[in-house]
């Protein structure tokens, strides 16, 4: 009787070990590609990077050297402009939804957000081409920013709604009970409390569009020189990587690796910042 019980226990322990082993194995297996990617990008990217690489514009094909400063400027310009365009609308929409959860309009906006999130970036780029590039008669930072803003919208809206929903109802009631208007309640209580969460949402959205070449392809198009106004075309890092990596020229391929490394570094920093922002709460 006893022996049988002990056997059963031992069997269960062994089963448990096996199960743990399997879980661990697949976890590691899932991490392998991640490490391989990072390793490869670092290995190929680091040699390409020096001061010149970061400060000069791209070189003609089949020559020596060349940098990515035009792409960095383009990336920064487009993502920042996109953030400026997307953020006010998205926060306003998110706030509206959070306070009017039961209304039809909120449901619709929320649904459209999920839909917008799943529209392929290349299609967004195409639409902006028709809306902005074709009427203006030129590719531009502005068009690229609008395309990116469209992609940032749903991410910021959804994170705004979630963060505001987490604020305790009692605090919001307290603001109203003090005689505050809806507007003052939003501006002086709700948004200040929600700021770290919304900021995290914005950064995630920003990281997402920074890495996308597709919406830029038909909108900002690419530019071997540093753009000077928002109506100039511009290159971004992913676009440069795409164009240079598929080229047969060695110096361009090397530049693509360097740019990949910079982009990866940026994304890692952004992810880290987001973690910090959300942890502080």
């Amino acid at each position: 009787m006893f022996a049988l019980q002990r056997n059963a226990t031992r069997y269960r322990i062994i089963k448990n070990h096996i199960f743990n082993g399997i879980v661990l194995f697949f976890t590691v297996l899932a991490l392998v590609p991640l490490f391989l990617i990072v390793y490869h990008v670092v290995k190929m990217g680091i040699p390409a990077i020096d001061w010149d690489f970061l400060t000069t514009t791209e070189a003609p094909p089949d020559t020596e050297g060349g940098g990515i400063v035009n792409s960095i400027v383009g990336t920064v310009a487009i993502t920042f402009l996109a953030t400026f365009i997307a953020t006010p609308f998205a926060i306003a929409a998110g706030t509206y939804i959070a306070f009017n959860r039961k209304k039809k309009l909120s449901e619709w906006v929320y649904l459209s957000c999920s839909a917008l999130q799943s529209i392929p970036a290349i299609v967004v780029g195409l639409i902006i081409y028709i809306w902005i590039v074709a009427p203006m008669g030129r590719f531009s930072i502005l068009a690229g920013s609008v395309a990116c803003a469209f992609m940032m919208f749903p991410i910021i809206i959804i994170s705004t709604v979630e963060v505001i929903s987490l604020i305790s109802n009692e605090v919001i009631e307290a603001a109203f009970a003090m005689g505050a208007s809806f507007f003052k309640t939003i501006m002086k209580v709700v948004l200040p409390i929600a700021t770290p969460g919304i900021a995290a949402g914005i950064i995630i959205a920003l990281a997402r569009v920074t890495g996308e070449a597709a919406p830029i392809l038909f909108t900002a198009f690419g530019n071997p020189f540093i753009p000077t106004t928002v109506t100039d075309p511009a290159s971004t890092l992913p676009l440069t990587i795409y164009k240079f990596a598929i080229s047969p020229y060695e110096n361009w391929q090397e530049t693509a690796w360097g740019a990949s490394f910079i982009l990866l570094l940026f994304i890692i920093v952004v992810n880290f910042t987001t973690k910090l922002l959300t942890k502080k709460r």
């Binding site: 009692e170 307290a174 603001a175 009970a177 209580v189 409390i193």
Partner: peptide
């Protein structure tokens, strides 16, 4: 008005 649970503005 003072509520059941203390609710100073956290910000």
């Amino acid at each position: 008005m003072v509520f059941q649970r203390p609710n100073p503005f956290p910000n």
